[in-house]
Design a binder for these strands. Structure first.
Length: 805
RNA sequence: GGGCGAAUAGCUCAGCUGGUUAGAGCGCCUGCCUUACACGCAGGAUGUCGGGGGUUCGAAUCCCUCUUCGCCCACCA
């Protein structure tokens, strides 16, 4: 008897020795390989189901954010794979323009150099080398958490293929008039030395100072009118060197008489006019605004309306300086070359000394910062490339509004709509070196229109003279917005993959890149493919520490998923985050107490392992008879009950997961009742847990023990039911805890498995006969048992002692 | 300034379209090393579902309002 319960399974789940082996087995079995030919879109017999990974930065190191994001995707893709879809999960990385360039620049800084010291070509090859050596290691790390990506399709935004997609997109938009060169005020990072898009310049509440500065009135002869003047309020006094006017509201009686006269711009000592413009709010401050067209987007508009000059008085790195050909000169010698913040102090001091500083007050306002280096962004007039977004936004807006694309959880739907309705043109040029060079060439000899080309241009087609390529590179997001198409072969719309797998299905991400990436992918999908890129956007929560702070490298409160895998296994990590995360809700984990944080997953993994250990030991190695061959009259009440519970569990799991795609077919929108339903992964997981633990283990296994002894009468029936139910349970749980389920499933005593069969590609459980009636009989037994247990506990009877009932 | 979300057991959270004694995990209490599992088993305690008002036969669930947190967006100098 004891030999029967002997087994080779360790008493505790040992992930370290099991998981790598299982992962290798999946790879060897080709379990994650998607085959275009099997897609029903091109004649196959399986509905395709595709997820593209949000490509991590190529230099990234795995953190909990990835752990969470990738686990969600893996659960979904494994579910669909088992449901019989041709499931494809496309992996890849993003070259991450600014982020990666910053990494290399930091390396150079250690050597006391800047990128300008080494030069563009050397800088790029150095970066490429760095990426070659370290890039993609994050994808390797994903193996450890069980990610079932099709690695043969690994993509990279800077690969030759995706680079040509980027050029194609640029040229097409240019030819349609949707990309243009714009001269306007953009956000400028004086540390990264590049322009930024609106999204990349993040607002940050800051307590600053509002300075009230007096600009004396000038008489017609240029002398100062001692009696009068105007006072302007500014938070950035240093920009006054670029002032070309002061504006008052046209209907403001206080200042009406001053319009047309000049005031004296202090420090620069220049006369500037008083103009009337409705932009001015008479109620704010003094009702007088200084106009600095080159360093403020609103002032730029005013400047355009009034035909004012637009002097730039600050350099790229943020030092005060006139442009070389500037007339008149505005930056005094003693301020030239001085950093903008230092200049601010000096100007304020000087104004104070001259009695021109009327007042200073603390002022709470939102200052934009560079999203990559947190430097205060400077509005700056420059020439940049822009995407005209309004025409792209229209279909993207309509698509989401009508349910062509649903956004989960529901509350993000409105956020998307609001953003898309107020979208502004997208600055796509960056003054960086790492990225896709803008495919535009200029001929300085004949100076004609810029040449925008898919192919490199080596000579001017008009005058055969030399050409030079635009120095700038494209915003990193200009390549990632094509990701669902470019990874499948676009612009070749005849490619097998794009026909088989586009549109993709679910896009999983954190809400932080809804605008950066998701909204733009939607625009690109409709623009370039004429169809949605996916039908579902699933936005999950983010990882926070116990005090609610977002986990981040800089705060040092992050968790390395690989530590968790090492300690408790990938399944414990996966179970914990999936079970503990309501849709769109942040998950709290304690980096200082991993054991506590991952207890739910660890406990569940161990429990499942032990159920398997007991079950495999008791049923033995002899293959069981398939349940279908057992006459239903031989089933006990307990058998009927567990089969009924299994059926209910399937139904509840299916309901929680919902429809995998819009039910109306390829081009259909989501019907209202399914619009915001489905993908409730935590409910699915909880249902599966309850079934396996509270029903299968606590009741069925316990009540079946006596039937499993070697000489028990209906041992064969019990073995069949047990193996059948456990097999189904392993399938049900596999998407969440793939390693343990695979490991146990491999050992099930069933005949007919091919030697290389893996659970990962088995079918999601199918429904069975109706056992509800007899199941109710067992429920009566349960009631009785629970009543007895309660009595035992109440009277403190030891479990060993028999009780007469 | 605009928009959104959250407030449910000691902690972290589920409670979908209002309807039997409000749930889970962790923690806590009692008893169990019952040879699958003490990372476990059995039993148990703990909630005027943020405050106030309303709709309804009936509300944690719908409406209004207040309070406290949090998030997103934003060209008021």
């Amino acid at each position: 008897m004891s030999s029967q319960i002997e087994h080779e399974l360790a008493p505790q789940y040992e992930p370290g020795s099991i998981e790598p082996e299982i992962y290798a087995r999946w790879l060897a079995a080709g379990a994650f390989d998607a085959h275009a030919g099997r897609s029903s879109r091109i004649g196959g017999d399986r509905p395709p189901f595709t997820i593209v990974i949000p490509p991590p930065n190529v230099t990234a190191v795995l953190h909990m954010g990835h752990g969470l994001d990738e686990t969600v995707q893996d659960v979904i893709i494994r579910w669909r794979r088992m449901a019989g879809d041709e499931a494809l999960w496309v992996p890849g990385t993003d070259h991450a323009g600014i982020a990666t360039q910053n990494v290399i620049e930091k390396q150079l800084a250690v050597e006391g150099k800047t990128r300008f010291d080494v030069g563009r070509a050397a800088f790029i090859s150095r970066t490429e080398e760095f990426v070659r050596l370290t890039g993609g290691s994050i994808l390797e790390q994903l193996h450890a958490i069980g990610a079932s990506c099709d690695w043969s399709r690994t993509a990279y935004t800077l690969s030759p293929e995706l680079s040509s997609a980027v050029r194609e997109a640029f040229v097409r938009l240019y030819e349609k008039g949707l990309i243009y060169r714009g001269h306007r005020v953009i956000h400028w990072c004086s540390r990264c030395l590049t322009s930024l898009s609106d999204e990349e310049a993040e607002h940050e509440e800051t307590t600053g100072t509002l300075y009230h500065v007096r600009y004396p009135l000038l008489n017609a002869d240029g002398t100062v009118d001692a009696a009068e003047g105007v006072t302007v309020a500014t938070t950035r006094p240093e920009t006054m060197l670029g002032d070309v006017a002061v504006a008052v509201h046209p209907e403001d009686d206080r200042y009406r008489h001053l319009v047309g006269r000049n005031v004296l711009l202090p420090i620069a000592n220049l006369p500037i006019p008083v103009i009337a413009d409705a932009y001015t709010d008479p109620a704010f401050g003094t009702g007088v605004v200084k106009i600095t067209p080159a360093h403020d987007p609103n002032d730029f508009e005013v400047g355009m309306r009034h035909g004012l000059p637009m002097p730039v008085i600050m350099t790229g790195p943020g030092e005060m300086r006139d442009e070389p050909d500037a007339t008149p000169r505005r930056v005094p010698t003693d301020l030239t070359g001085i950093d903008r913040f230092e200049a601010r102090e000096r100007i304020v001091a000087s104004l104070g000394a001259q009695g021109l500083l009327a007042r200073r007050e603390t002022h709470l306002h939102a200052v934009r910062h560079c999203y990559r280096c947190d430097t205060v962004v400077e509005p700056r007039l420059s020439d940049q490339w822009f995407v005209r977004t309004a025409p792209l936004a229209a279909p993207a807006l309509d698509g989401v509004r009508r349910g062509d694309i649903r956004i989960l959880p529901e509350r993000h739907h409105a956020v998307y709509i609001n953003w898309m309705e107020n979208i502004r043109d997208w600055n796509i040029s960056r003054q960086l070196w790492w990225g896709h060079r803008i495919p535009v060439w200029y001929c300085d000899r004949c100076g004609g229109e810029p040449l925008v080309s898919r192919e490199d241009v080596s000579a001017c087609p008009t005058c055969a003279g030399p050409v030079r390529q635009d120095e700038d590179v494209l915003d990193t997001w200009f390549s990632s917005w094509l990701w669902p198409m470019s990874t499948l072969g676009w612009p070749d719309t005849d490619s097998e993959d794009i026909r088989a797998f586009y549109p993709t299905d679910v896009l999983v991400s954190g809400p932080d890149i809804l605008f950066f990436w998701i909204a733009r992918m939607i625009m690109a999908g409709y623009e370039f493919m004429g169809r949605r890129p996916f039908h579902t956007v699933y936005l999950h929560g983010i990882a926070r520490d116990p005090s609610g702070r977002k986990m981040s490298k800089s705060l040092g409160n992050g968790i390395d998923p690989l530590d968790v895998v090492r300690l408790f296994g990938a399944d414990a990590l996966r179970y914990t985050v999936i079970a503990g995360m309501g849709m769109g809700v942040d998950v709290r984990l304690d980096p200082d107490d991993l054991e506590k944080s991952f207890t739910p997953g660890r406990n569940f993994a161990t429990k499942l392992w032990n159920i398997g250990r007991f079950l495999l030991g008791s049923v033995g190695r002899e293959p069981v008879a398939p349940l279908a061959t057992i006459d239903s009259s031989r089933l006990t009440r307990a058998d009927a009950w567990i089969l009924d519970r299994l059926k209910v569990a399937f139904a509840e799991c299916d309901a929680a997961l919902g429809a995998a795609r819009p039910p109306g077919g390829e081009e259909s929108a989501w019907p209202a009742d399914e619009r915001f339903a489905g993908l409730r992964l935590n409910e699915y997981t909880e249902t599966a847990r309850r079934f396996v633990w509270n029903e299968l283990a606590d009741w069925y296994v316990e009540s079946t023990k006596s039937r499993l002894t070697p000489d028990a009468e209906d041992r064969e029936v019990a073995r069949s039911v047990l193996v059948h139910v456990f097999d189904a349970a392993l399938r049900l749980l596999h998407p969440v805890v793939p390693f343990i389920t695979e490991s146990l499933w491999q050992r099930l005593p069933v005949s007919g498995h091919s030697p290389d069969a893996v659970l990962a590609t088995q079918r999601w459980p199918v429904r069975h006969g109706d056992h509800a009636v007899r199941a109710r009989e067992f429920a009566v037994v349960q009631e009785a048992v629970m009543a007895i247990r309660q009595l035992r506990a109440d009277y403190a009877l030891p479990p060993g002692r028999a009780v007469e009932v």
